[in-house]
């Protein structure tokens, strides 16, 4: 049982992912690409929340929380690399 409108939202979010993906692929410098990645991260988190609502499954939101907490770490690692200096 799923709600139609939430799936439409999901489709629209996928459209945003496509645009961010274009930025990841085209971005002239590495920071541009991370910006794209960060945007994809946030959109995917929202997408997961929406999907959980669409399928009426509470447990699915857990995955979104994991993402929200962890996606930030990969950004930090790449940012740290670009900053220079040792780990």
């Amino acid at each position: 049982m799923m709600d139609f409108e939430y799936l439409v939202v999901l489709l629209a979010l996928l459209f945003c992912v496509i645009m961010a993906m274009i930025r990841v692929i085209r971005g002239p410098t590495a920071p541009d690409r991370i910006v794209g990645l960060d945007t994809i991260n946030t959109i995917v988190i929202v997408g997961m929340v929406v999907f959980g609502a669409a399928f009426n499954e509470v447990i699915y939101i857990d995955v979104a929380i994991v993402y929200a907490l962890l996606s930030f770490i990969s950004t930090l690692f790449i940012a740290k690399y670009l900053e220079g200096g040792d780990f």
Binding site: V17, M21, V24, I25, G27, A30, R33, I34, G36, L37, I40, N41, V44, G47, M48, F51, Y60, V63, Y67, S71, S74, I78, Y81, L82
Partner: peptide
């Protein structure tokens, strides 16, 4: 650029995870 490759792998992994989820 290997860093760009790493970013792309991260993005792929992210989308793969969304696909698993769906």
């Amino acid at each position: 650029d290997l860093i760009a490759a790493a970013i792309a792998v991260a993005a792929m992994s992210l989308l793969l995870s969304l696909e698993f989820y769906i």
